[in-house]
Every structure is written in C-alpha cells, then in structure tokens.
C-alpha cells in the first residue's frame, strides 16, 4: 500500500508540474501586456517590469516563476484587480466562502446520492425507482445555475426564508452558512443525481451476482447479504465518479457565486481573465488544478483501500 501511495503521489507531483508549466506558457504568451495602465509613468512601468523580471526572455521568466513558487510560495503580484497585493494573499482572502460552498455541496451530495441510488436499486422498476430516475435525469441535464436562480426566486422572494445574497458581514459562521444554503443545494443536485444513477446501476448488477447468491446460501439474510456484499462492492466504481463530480462542483461554483454574490475564487478567476491580471490567473489555474489532483489522489488511495486487487496487485 505504501508503494502504491508513493507512486500515486509521484504521478500527482509530475502532473502538477506539467500543469503549472502549461498555465504559465499559455497565459503568459497571450498578446496582452502585463501593464497597460496609462496612469503609471513609463519609467516607473519599466522599473516595475525589471523588478518582476518582465524585461527578460520568456524562459528566464519561467525559471523565476518556478523558483518563486517552490522556494517561497511566491506566485507574483496582482497588477490589476488588487494592484500590488501578493497573489497568494488574494487567493487566501477568497478561499473561505468558496471552500464552504464547495465542500458542503459535496458533503450534501454524497449521502443524498447514495440513499437515492440504493432506494432506486432495491425498488427497481417500482414507483420510487421511477420517480428517482425522473429526478435524476432533470438534475443531471439542467445546469446548476438554473436551479440556483429557481431556488433564489422561490425561497428568497416567494417564501423569504433565506437571504437573497451572500452575507459578507455575517458575524457568525452560522449566519454565513445560512446565506450559503441555497447555493449549496443548487450545486449539490447534479452530483447527487450522478451518484444515484451510478450506484443504482452498480447495485443492480451486484444484486444479481453469483457471490450475492452464495452469501444467501450461507444463511445470511437478504439485508445482511446486501449490506455486506453488494454495497461495498458497488462503491468501487462510484469512487470514480468523484473526480468529474468535484470538478463539476467547482465549475458550477464559478457561476453560482455570481448569482448569489459570493466573493469566492470563481468570480475572481473570471474577472482576472477578463482584465488580464496574468499572475493572478496563473495562480488561480494552479489552485484549481491542485484541488482536482488532490481529489484524484484521494480517490486513487480510497480505491486501494476498498479494492484489494488494486492495492496488492500494485505492490507486485
């Protein structure tokens, strides 16, 4: 297991490096000057450019870029959105609402999906299954911002239960969380439906498997057989859906944050691209990739934990 983990870790670091390099080259080669501020005198502009090594050839800049990140977590400075502020600090200031939003969507989606998928599989082709399958289709095919808008209309306007927008001046976590409830639900519907759909299929297959029959001929009750032999086995392929799910939540978050005026990372990424705040864009891209890679890493490890064939096979 250790070897397997280390190998996964190595692969993750290599991928991270490639992504960092790609983000750097793609963004920085875009035909937009880093400074285009008419209020700054050309001499000062040149001075600043020298300080940021912008006057040197691209590959030298690349060297400084990598060295800065690796040695002192220096991703450069924001030049347009928050002029002069360290990019790292900009990101840190934006992390909290985004993380709360994304994390709790996930925490909500996983058990909801598992419960719905299990009900659907056990009640196969009966009305609960049909109802769940119908909802699943809707939740998967309609993008989350539509649900965001609908929820916002229903529960802040028609029935004003929740605040319309994110409460930036909330004095407690509870209050902040309350203002994030609707976007969390909006973001969770799609992933919950994805899990439900996959789990239903997997469970139905394992429920018909020979080893489930064997479990019953041993003298286990149907419930014991399902819980011990069908459920855990079905989770193996479900782990795989986690990766697109988390990136999906983060993608949906870009728009949802706008609808509910959440000052998170998503809004920041879009803005930084629009105005051409290159250092910030690169850093945000790296941030998003890092999250995805860590997700993949965790999923890979949990695969190994669930399925001995991967864990032990990988050691040979």
């Amino acid at each position: 297991m250790l070897k397997y983990t280390l190998r996964r870790w190595g692969a993750m670091m290599l991928t991270m490096f490639i992504i960092m390099s790609l983000s750097f080259w793609i963004i920085r080669l875009m035909p937009q000057s880093i400074f285009e501020n008419p209020e700054v005198a050309p001499e000062i502009q040149r001075l600043l450019e020298a300080e940021m090594h912008l006057d040197k050839p691209m590959w030298v800049q690349y060297y400084y870029f990598l060295r800065g990140i690796i040695t002192e977590r220096d991703f450069g400075r924001s030049v347009k959105l928050r002029p002069g502020m360290e990019v790292f600090k900009v990101i840190v200031s934006r992390i909290k609402p985004s993380m709360v939003l994304n994390f709790f969507s996930l925490i909500l989606a996983i058990p909801a999906g598992i419960i719905l998928g299990t009900i659907a599989a056990l009640q196969r082709n009966k009305w609960p299954d049909n109802l769940i399958s119908f909802l699943v289709v809707i939740f998967i095919s309609v993008p989350s911002f539509v649900f965001g808008a609908v929820l916002q209309y229903l529960f802040t306007f028609k029935f004003p239960i929740f605040p319309t927008l994110y409460n930036a001046s909330a004095s407690s976590f509870r209050e902040m969380f309350r203002s994030l409830t609707l976007p969390i639900i909006a973001l969770a519907l799609g992933p919950a439906a994805t899990i439900a759909r996959y789990l239903r299929g997997e469970l139905i297959e394992t429920l018909n498997s020979e080893f489930l029959l064997l479990a019953r001929t041993k003298g286990l009750t149907r419930t014991q057989a399902v819980v011990r032999h069908a459920f855990r086995n079905s989770l193996v392929p479900i782990a795989n859906t986690m990766i697109p799910m988390i990136t999906g939540i983060m993608g949906g978050s870009l728009v949802i944050e706008r609808i509910f005026a959440v000052p998170g990372m998503g809004g920041q990424l879009v803005e930084s691209i629009v105005v051409g705040d290159h250092f910030l864009t690169v850093a945000l891209l790296i941030w998003y990739s890092a999250i995805s890679l860590i997700t993949i890493f965790i999923v890979d490890i949990s695969y190994g934990l669930i399925d001995p064939r991967i864990r032990i096979g990988g050691e040979k």
Binding site: S209, E210, F211, L213, L214, A215, R228, H229, R232, N233, V236, I306, D307, P308, R309
Partner: peptide
C-alpha cells in the same frame, strides 16, 4: 463457477 461465487474484495 468459483471465480464469480466469491466476493472479490473480501
């Protein structure tokens, strides 16, 4: 079929 009669992950 002893291949499919045993639970692969137990």
């Amino acid at each position: 079929d002893p291949l499919s009669a045993l639970n692969p992950i137990m």
